[in-house]
Design a protein around this nucleic acid. Structure first.
Lengths: 233, 233
DNA sequence: GAAACCGTTCGGCCGGCACCGAACGGTCGC
DNA sequence: GCGACCGTTCGGTGCCGGCCGAACGGTTTC
């Protein structure tokens, strides 16, 4: 009981430093960063970054992979990303999430997209999520769940492996509050597999070195055919 | 971008102290505590507790209500409770959550129950959640969502107000990982209203001053009739 | 009004920790 | 091999913040 308080404090303490917070937020793109990159990103000396990375790895938030003279670091898993998203969601004063859903989806183009840990985010992520909701594949009213039709669509039309979508420890479908859009987009196991399939099919591609992604012409055509999305990137 | 890191750090910093963590965990029972009670609970001087409460209130995690010479404090809302649960869930090394679902529900009695912020938890909470799942009222496979039948059951059989279950800012149904049972139980708006109805119907009652609740004889009969639960408290 | 009680403010103490620079030890390129 | 590079370890410094006790103000009780 009392021990749990100290453990909670230790866990929170990992994120209670601006430098460590900046590191974790950078890692939210789901990719592995080197220690030096993170040091530069957080504007601290390499030696300082080393200490922080040690604490974060020891605390279970990060995993490391030594490779040559580089030390690659990334988030320990989706649950860590989820935790960070939850915390970050508290920062921005949230506004009404139910606002002109159809108008936004149908008309305003999905201008910019990016990855949020392992799934699609930004306008692209929100647009896909809304389109799936309109098509009856996703139920946003009662929680955030895949419908039976949605499950069939993912495994049938999109060709995802059914075992990848089996009920397991990780939630199948989960809402993730978008920082820029202030809207929910699809996360969880389904969101991750969907995103992966988008990359495999070359419907989206990374632009530059950031977490930004753009829709390819193939992707635009596919989304139009599959979900009726007419947005242009 | 960089400012967000410092904000995240500040937020995490609120929980990064053992005393403040103990205070927040105590408040997870959803009730209002006085400053003195919390000071005693956390084993610190009243003056120390005052400072911590100030920071927690300023940080938006707690709300206060002055009443006579007392200062009552409680969690600022369900989202704060959700955040604490998420953090606490990382502390315990989680074990396989899918394990003898039916056996646990049907056989092992719902020995002890308690409230977790504003919904039922402990064996009672898990048992009700599992029974609702078996009855097709709840869908645990794809996320954690009320089925159409579940929505009808809550408003019809249980007599909840439909507007209380309208899709709003708060998730309707949400899974909350139980500390002691290591199993999911129903949280969210539906979980809160269900819990309230249980209290209103005198199906459950608080035992002592803690967050523990016990099932009344009326409650046992009702759960048997409604959900086929044969557990004995 | 006096006494008891709850909470707050203030001053002071102390430990922890975030930061840096310098030195060191691996790894890669020529 | 030698130099450039990446990361780590080690001292040292300074500050932030958690803690307490004492004094004070407001509320309740008798």
């Amino acid at each position: 009981m009392m021990t749990s308080a100290s453990e909670l404090a230790s866990l929170a303490g990992l994120l209670a430093d601006e430098t460590r917070a900046a590191i974790c937020l950078a890692l939210l793109d789901g990719r592995a960063w080197t220690a030096g990159e993170l040091a530069a990103h957080a504007h601290v000396a390499p030696s300082t970054a080393t200490e922080h990375l040690h604490r974060l790895v020891d605390g279970g938030l990060l995993t490391e992979r030594r490779q040559g003279r580089h030390r690659y670091v990334q988030l320990a898993g989706p649950s860590v990303a989820h935790l960070l998203e939850d915390l970050a969601a508290r920062l921005e004063p949230r506004q009404d999430p139910v606002l002109g859903l159809r108008a936004v989806t149908a008309n305003a183009a999905l201008r910019r997209g990016r990855t949020c840990y392992d799934h699609l985010a930004g306008r692209l992520g929100v647009a896909v999520t809304d389109a799936m909701t309109e098509a009856g594949l996703l139920d946003q009213a009662g929680g955030f769940a895949l419908t039976r039709a949605g499950l069939g669509w993912l495994t049938g039309t999109l060709g995802l492996e059914p075992e990848d979508l089996a009920p397991g420890k990780r939630p199948l479908a989960r809402g993730c509050l978008d920082w820029t859009e202030r809207r929910q987009h699809l996360a969880g196991a389904a969101g991750a597999k969907l995103c992966q399939k988008f990359f495999d099919n070359r419907w989206v591609a990374r632009t530059g070195s950031g977490r930004a992604v753009r829709l390819t012409p193939d992707g635009q055509a596919a989304l139009h055919d599959l979900l009726g999305l007419a947005g242009i990137d």
